[in-house]
Write a protein that binds this DNA or RNA. Structure first.
Lengths: 248, 248
DNA sequence: CAGTGGTCTAGACCACAGT
DNA sequence: CTGTGGTCTAGACCACTGT
């Protein structure tokens, strides 16, 4: 294990600097799965930070799923980190890039519509109020991956229909143009069979296995700002998750 | 919002006491989604704890997905907490109880076998070494939910075949009898169609949508201690997840 | 016993948001 | 400007693990 050190003139928080060094040790294989990381005391001694700061480093790694800590024993390296993080709000674009794939989208339709009842309930919208419905086909390296149907309340996104163009990142645009930032999202995943029209777009046989995602995104003030239904190809997509024994 | 207080004679950590009170406010509806919780300073003032302890309370709620914190703004209540937590290592029994369902199991088979190649690779076992294979049908309120096939290395669990009986919790037994505790697990979920023999056990039509779970559980020292393949009925099971904007 | 992480204190300075 | 959460310090006592 390389000796640890920090740069106190840097604007990067000390615990982040130390975390980066420890992550480098782990990713390089110098700290393999099951091995013991330096203790809080030891990190504090080597770097000159206080024990609370050293502790913050180790807790952070623990929450990332990279390590496991046990009182009286120490902090141990867990298995190699997984490529997909199921816990974080991410756009399709971000997710595909993280997997090393080239994302692309095709807009299937963009209309102002009366929302289906599920979207209306999720968005707490009165009957007869219209919302924007954006349907897109999502591709990775040119291969169809999913169909995404977003419902966006009109009052939150005035003039959306004209402002949104192909190739734009929806989340970036909502944040930059409307100052709307999704802070948290609830997602439900179901296993289903591809319906004929979806199958055609996804280029799979009708009745093929698919994931059905339903997502409701919320703002800081608790308002629902997006309702999304997506169909993912079961043969090209998998959910990966790391579980911890304890609730942090 | 009720005034906060703590009992310093209690053995429950102060931040947990405060967290319980805040959770009660949220669950009762007195602190609805989008409302502002007391600030760190305010909690410290009301309870007499230090600001760092008050802070620990709010960070903990944030990590549980109950709140969202923003510098300069405060800590806001997120939507009602979801019933299933996809992040925590849980047995089928624990999970069903959390959903208010009555779990039951039927042992389909328990044999010492040469493991399939996937299990062998996951468990890092040499060819020709045998492992225990426990196959169980899982039921909730009497309705078949899933088929679970666990592969357990013989050397970790001597005499397992004779010690394990129906009705026992596998995880409890592994911990109590063998001192083996799964600290972390990696899980992969795929969408698939029910094969004929699984469909019969699950009482669904062949070709029905199912979730295919693959789980590898690890000990503190990084050793793989369990490889599990499960098939869940797609019509009775759904994955629920809460996503946060930030990586904690 | 010494070493580990878990909790806690009473301060400090900072970046950011809203006035 | 005040108030918020984010980072950080230099101590403290505790529960748990190993020898």
């Amino acid at each position: 294990m390389h000796p640890l050190s920090v740069d106190r003139r840097s604007s990067i928080p000390l615990y982040c600097q130390i975390r980066q060094k420890l992550l480098a040790e782990i990713e390089s294989g110098r700290a393999p799965a099951g091995s013991l990381l330096p203790s809080e005391q030891e990190i504090a001694r080597q770097t000159g930070v206080s024990r609370m700061t050293a502790r913050q480093t180790l807790k952070s790694l623990c929450r990332m799923g990279v390590t496991v800590s046990r009182r009286g024993k120490g902090t141990f390296v867990a298995r190699a980190k997984l490529d997909k993080n199921f816990r974080q709000v991410r756009s399709f674009t971000e997710e595909m890039k993280a997997l090393g794939l080239k994302p692309r989208s095709r807009i299937l339709s963009l209309k102002l519509v009366l929302p289906p009842v599920e979207a209306r309930q999720a968005l707490h919208i009165e009957p007869s109020v219209k919302v924007f419905n954006l349907r897109r086909l999502r591709l990775a390296n040119g291969v169809p991956m999913s169909i995404e149907s977003s419902f966006l309340p009109e009052r939150l996104y005035p003039d959306f229909e004209r402002a949104f163009h192909r190739g734009m990142s929806l989340y970036e645009m909502l944040e930059n143009r409307y100052g709307v930032r999704m802070e948290i999202a609830d997602e439900v995943v179901e296993a289903d069979l591809a319906r004929a029209e979806d199958a055609e777009l996804l280029r799979v046989a009708p009745g093929s296995p698919v994931f059905q995602f339903t997502r409701i995104s919320y703002l800081l003030d608790g308002r629902a700002a997006e309702y999304v239904e997506s169909v993912y190809r079961g043969d090209r997509y998998r959910i990966v998750n790391r579980l911890s024994r304890v609730e942090h």
